[in-house]
Protein backbone atom coordinates (compact mmCIF):
# COMPACT_ATOMS: atom_id res chain seq x y z
CA UNK A 1 0.00 0.00 0.00
CA UNK A 2 2.67 2.56 0.93
CA UNK A 3 4.66 1.35 -2.06
CA UNK A 4 1.74 2.34 -4.27
CA UNK A 5 1.74 5.63 -2.40
CA UNK A 6 5.34 6.26 -3.30
CA UNK A 7 4.68 5.75 -7.00
CA UNK A 8 1.59 7.90 -6.84
CA UNK A 9 3.44 10.69 -5.07
CA UNK A 10 5.96 10.73 -7.89
CA UNK A 11 3.18 10.72 -10.49
CA UNK A 12 1.29 13.56 -8.80
CA UNK A 13 4.40 15.69 -8.47
CA UNK A 14 5.25 15.22 -12.13
CA UNK A 15 1.71 16.09 -13.21
CA UNK A 16 1.97 19.34 -11.21
CA UNK A 17 5.25 20.12 -12.93
CA UNK A 18 3.47 19.58 -16.28
CA UNK A 19 0.72 22.05 -15.39
CA UNK A 20 3.31 24.57 -14.18
CA UNK A 21 5.34 24.31 -17.39
CA UNK A 22 2.25 24.74 -19.56
CA UNK A 23 1.24 27.85 -17.57
CA UNK A 24 4.69 29.42 -17.90
CA UNK A 25 4.70 28.49 -21.59
CA UNK A 26 1.34 30.12 -22.18
CA UNK A 27 2.21 33.33 -20.29
CA UNK A 28 5.51 33.76 -22.16
CA UNK A 29 3.84 32.97 -25.50
CA UNK A 30 1.21 35.61 -24.89
CA UNK A 31 3.57 38.24 -23.47
CA UNK A 32 6.17 37.91 -26.23
CA UNK A 33 3.71 37.80 -29.13
CA UNK A 34 1.44 40.62 -28.06
CA UNK A 35 3.96 42.60 -25.99
CA UNK A 36 6.22 42.99 -29.03
CA UNK A 37 3.70 42.65 -31.85
CA UNK A 38 0.75 44.86 -30.92
CA UNK A 39 2.20 48.16 -32.20
CA UNK A 40 2.11 49.57 -35.71
CA UNK A 41 3.67 47.20 -38.25
CA UNK A 42 5.73 50.09 -39.67
CA UNK A 43 7.54 50.40 -36.31
CA UNK A 44 8.45 46.69 -35.97
CA UNK A 45 12.03 45.78 -35.28
CA UNK A 46 13.40 42.79 -37.16
CA UNK A 47 15.72 40.00 -36.01
CA UNK A 48 17.33 37.84 -38.73
CA UNK A 49 14.80 39.26 -41.16
CA UNK A 50 11.79 38.26 -39.02
CA UNK A 51 9.57 40.57 -36.96
CA UNK A 52 10.83 40.57 -33.37
CA UNK A 53 7.51 39.37 -31.90
CA UNK A 54 7.57 36.38 -34.22
CA UNK A 55 11.23 35.60 -33.67
CA UNK A 56 10.89 35.59 -29.88
CA UNK A 57 7.43 34.01 -29.43
CA UNK A 58 7.71 31.30 -32.07
CA UNK A 59 11.43 30.50 -32.29
CA UNK A 60 13.27 31.58 -29.13
CA UNK A 61 10.45 30.55 -26.79
CA UNK A 62 10.14 27.12 -28.45
CA UNK A 63 13.88 26.54 -28.11
CA UNK A 64 13.70 27.70 -24.49
CA UNK A 65 10.83 25.30 -23.73
CA UNK A 66 12.72 22.38 -25.27
CA UNK A 67 15.71 23.13 -23.03
CA UNK A 68 13.56 23.58 -19.91
CA UNK A 69 11.59 20.38 -20.58
CA UNK A 70 14.82 18.44 -21.09
CA UNK A 71 16.30 19.71 -17.83
CA UNK A 72 13.12 19.16 -15.85
CA UNK A 73 12.78 15.57 -17.08
CA UNK A 74 16.46 14.75 -16.49
CA UNK A 75 16.58 16.34 -13.03
CA UNK A 76 13.15 15.89 -11.48
CA UNK A 77 11.49 12.90 -13.12
CA UNK A 78 11.94 9.64 -11.25
CA UNK A 79 11.94 6.12 -12.60
CA UNK A 80 9.27 3.94 -11.05
CA UNK A 81 8.14 0.43 -11.98
CA UNK A 82 4.71 0.17 -13.58
CA UNK A 83 3.89 -3.45 -12.82
CA UNK A 84 2.87 -4.35 -9.27
CA UNK A 85 5.00 -7.53 -9.35
CA UNK A 86 8.08 -5.55 -10.31
CA UNK A 87 7.55 -3.41 -7.25
CA UNK A 88 7.42 -6.46 -4.99
CA UNK A 89 10.37 -8.12 -6.65
CA UNK A 90 12.40 -4.96 -6.31
CA UNK A 91 11.82 -4.70 -2.56
CA UNK A 92 12.32 -8.36 -1.72
Amino acid sequence: MDLTDRRMKVAHREAKIGVGLALIHFILWFALAYGLGSGDVADYTYVFGMPAWFFYSCIVLSGFMIIVVTFVVKLFFKEVPFEDQEEERETK
Binding site: R7, M8, V10, A11, H12, E14, A15, I17, G18, V19, L21, A22, M65, V69, V80, F82
Partner: peptide
Protein backbone atom coordinates in the same frame (compact mmCIF):
# COMPACT_ATOMS: atom_id res chain seq x y z
CA UNK B 1 5.33 17.34 -23.05
CA UNK B 2 1.93 18.04 -21.47
CA UNK B 3 0.07 14.85 -22.44
CA UNK B 4 2.72 12.49 -21.10
CA UNK B 5 3.47 14.56 -18.02
CA UNK B 6 -0.19 14.69 -16.95
CA UNK B 7 -1.39 11.20 -17.86
CA UNK B 8 2.12 9.93 -17.34
CA UNK B 9 2.97 7.44 -14.69
CA UNK B 10 -0.37 7.44 -12.98
CA UNK B 11 -2.25 6.34 -16.09
CA UNK B 12 0.42 3.77 -16.91
CA UNK B 13 0.23 2.18 -13.46
Amino acid sequence: YFVLMILGKKFAV
